[in-house]
Each structure stands twice: as structure tokens, then as C-alpha cells.
Amino acid sequence: MGFVEIEDVSLRYRAQGAEEGTLAVEGLNLSVEEGAFVAVVGPSGCGKSSLMRLATGLHFPTTGRVSVAGAPVKGPVSVAGMAFQNPVMLPWRLTRDNVLLPLEVVQPHRSRLRRNRAEYRARAEALLATVGLAGQGGKYPWQLSGGMQQRASLCRALIHEPRLVMLDEPFGALDAFTREELWCVMRDLHAEKRFTAILVTHDLREAVFLADRIFVMSARPGRVIAVRDVPMPRPRDISVTYTPEFSEIVHELRGHIAEARA
């Protein structure tokens, strides 16, 4: 059994006052092994964000089962960390205090944090250093560039050492060079910390570069219409993105997406 199991799930959003509501996903099946890096791609509005909310326990399925780490999801799963396209940093906190925010919520850190400030500060700075933000923790987020804020937001997703990391197009708003840099940052973080990662993205190259397995979703109501394993060995250098093998997989996925949109 996988670390994240989504079995025959449908999710209907009840619009306020409406009888029916929209069916975001239907007949969704997805299984992710512990420590794997998977990507989910699909046309826009295919329920990828619903998938994120299902796996983190922010939403419950209308029908079907969701389990994480062997247990059915009954509420928010605190083993998860999340990063979004928008870095959503709190502007009144220093970058390092933004990174520490999750620890102010989850135990046992919540009760330890106040008394062990220095220790936690060092921990945040160390994590920031691994994404190339050494010594930047004392700045406010708005003093950092967009790419740097997104790095910090990855740190915030990872600071409580989550076993599951959910990434909702975290590189979508960045320029091409910064994006490829952050792919490598993500690759190295995954290699080092071995969490289970689910990346939702529109960028097929990004999916192929980072993931071991790629799920293609259909248009709404979303379900998985194709699964593609990426056999290229890890860790991958950015130069693999120029190999024929890489392009072939990207093309294949593009074909699936075109079908899904039709």
C-alpha cells in the first residue's frame, strides 16, 4: 500500500445555495509510494488543486477513500507541507520567522519554540542556506526577489520535516532561468530529505525533470487518464532536458493532454 492512497474518489463542491454544485473530480485513483516524487499534469481546471486539498485533509471526498501514511484522512494531516505559486509570506515577519511559522503550530515545537529561540533560528537559517539563501533570514520577505521568496516558501513547507510535500505550481510565476534553478534546488532537497512529494504543474518539462512518475488528469471532472514512469536515473542534471529521451516523454505527455482537452 502506498504512502498516499486515493481510491475511487469523487469530490463535489457545493456552491452556495446551488442544488448540484460542480463535480471537481470523479473516479480518481492514485497511489504514491513513500519517498517517491510524482507529478500531476492536466488541462486547467482539471481538479489538480482539489487533489492537493484532498491529500492534505483540507477537503473530504464526497465518495471514495483517501489515506495518508497508512491511516484514513479524517482531518488536516499535519505530516504535510505545502507550497503554492504565490509564496504568501507574511510581510511583518522576517524571512526566518516566516519559515518558522509552521513550527508555531505543530507539536512538539509549538511549546518548545519560545524557550529555544536561538536553536530554532539556527535551524531556519541552516535550511535557508540549503536553498541558497544563506544569511538572508534577517531580511523581510519584500526585500527579497520573487525567486528568493519562493525559495523561502519552500523552506517554510519543509521546516517541520513533513513526510509529504504538496507543491501547487510553485515555480509557475518565475522566469525561465530562476525556474530551472529552483528545479535543481527541489531535486537536491528531495534527494537529501527523502520526503514523498506530489507536484501539481502545468509545465510538462518540469514534471519530467523532477518526477519518477507522472499522472495525467482529464478535463473536469478530473480523473487519471494516463500514468507515465520516467526511467531516467536520479539525480538528473539539467542537461537531460535536452536529450531525445526527455523530449520523447514530454511529447507523449503533450499528446495525452491534447486528448484530455478535446
Binding site: R53, T56, G57, L58, G75, P76, V77, S78, A80, M82, F84, N86, V88, L90, W92, L101, P102, E104, V105, V106, R156, A157, H160
Partner: peptide
């Protein structure tokens, strides 16, 4: 998104308000 980040960690409404809402 900010609310999701905190709620996914099990934060209560009170946490979200004191850490995000009120300073904001």
C-alpha cells in the same frame, strides 16, 4: 493559501487569527 498552509498543519481558527489575521 496562507489559511491552507496553517490549517493543513492543524491550526485552529484562533492560531490563524492571532498569527495572520490580526497583524494583517
Amino acid at each position: 493559501e496562507m489559511e491552507d498552509v496553517l490549517r493543513a498543519l492543524g491550526a485552529k481558527k484562533f492560531d490563524i487569527m492571532t498569527k495572520v489575521g490580526i497583524p494583517r
